[in-house]
């Protein structure tokens, strides 16, 4: 067992030399277990977080007249399937769902890939102008682009992409948010020394990226994927302008829910609920990957 003095200490983190892999894995992440206080706090947070979604289910399962009563109902009722089928009659929900899955998946894949690459470059590679370019990248987040929708639409129209889902995918395929996020994460999660060791060992940049950086930043990539997917899924303002009911994303398809004789809250809620389901599935699949600490130790080329 080596003593503390022999372990290289880099930037406050103790870096394994590869001689004690088993001990490392036992101490992956926080070794502590959550106590009852933790569970209690998290349950309260969960209730507060989930309650409006629950209430959406309640509203979606009543008829409109029941909802208009003075005291709102608190428990679900039986009209859910009736409302959802009425919602389908009014709005192209399935088409919107499919388009949204495509759009959000493309944006998420592109964002995670390109932002991790760029974040790595800004965090670990030295090149002329890196600070200026990083600053420029962050600055691009600071201009409110509400009014930019009009010239953007004209640009898309000139490219022949109006009413096509590419118009919704392309503008956000890489975001400054993602680049900045990955840059911060990689800067703190991947020690310089490992990168340098990789270079010294003769690996090229992409190899280092693939073998050292990517495994280390899996939690960040997962979180970025979840947030990006959801942001793309919820995007409403630009898709309303760029798309139409013939080729909608799910938010655009919701627009048709209010076209009955008069807008019915219960049907709108039912349609909205249907449009949220895929998100829950994606999350359940991604959520388990926010586990870290696999980079301590063996990083063989």
């Amino acid at each position: 067992m080596t003593s503390t003095v022999d372990r290289p200490e880099v930037h406050g983190k103790v870096v394994a030399t590869g001689s004690e892999p088993r001990r490392r894995q036992r101490h992956r992440g926080q070794p502590m277990h959550g106590g009852p206080g933790t569970y209690l706090a998290l349950i309260v947070v969960t209730i507060v977080s989930v309650f409006p979604l629950y209430y959406t289910i309640v509203m979606a399962s009543h008829t409109n007249a029941e909802l208009a009563r003075k005291t709102p109902p608190l428990l679900p009722s039986t009209a859910l399937f009736g409302n959802i089928s009425k919602a389908f009659e009014l709005a192209p929900l399935n088409k919107g769902l499919v388009n949204s899955v495509i759009v959000s998946s493309c944006i998420t894949a592109g964002t995670v890939a390109f932002c991790t690459l760029a974040g790595f470059a800004f965090a670990k590679l030295r090149f002329r102008g890196s600070n200026v370019l990083l600053g420029l990248c962050v600055v691009t987040m600071m201009v409110p682009m509400q009014m930019g929708i009009i010239p953007l639409y004209m640009l898309m129209a000139r490219l022949g992409l109006a009413n096509h889902i590419e118009a919704v995918i392309l503008p956000t395929l890489v975001t400054a948010f993602g680049v900045f996020f990955m840059r911060q994460y990689i800067a703190s999660a991947v020690p310089d020394e490992l990168i340098e060791a990789g270079f010294v060992d003769g690996a090229n940049t992409f190899r280092i990226f693939r073998s050292i950086v990517v495994p280390a930043v899996r939690p960040a990539m997962t979180v970025l994927a979840m947030l990006t997917f959801l942001t793309a899924w919820n995007d409403f303002f630009w898709p309303i302008i760029a798309l139409s009911s013939q080729n909608p994303t799910v938010q655009v398809s919701f627009q048709s829910l209010a076209t009955g004789y008069a807008p019915e809250q219960s049907i709108i809620m039912a349609g909205t609920l249907y449009g949220t389901l895929p998100v829950l599935v994606v999350f359940a699949l991604l959520g388990r990957h926010i586990v870290g600490g696999i980079m301590q130790g063996a990083v063989k080329g």
Binding site: I150, Y153, M154, S244, Q255, S256, T259
Partner: peptide
């Protein structure tokens, strides 16, 4: 081709009229 609120509809219509397409 529906937009729920007439204000949003009008914004979209103006944008499309300004660009002449869609």
């Amino acid at each position: 081709d529906d937009v729920e609120q007439s204000a949003d509809y009008w914004t979209r219509l103006k944008t499309r009229l300004a660009s002449g397409s869609g």
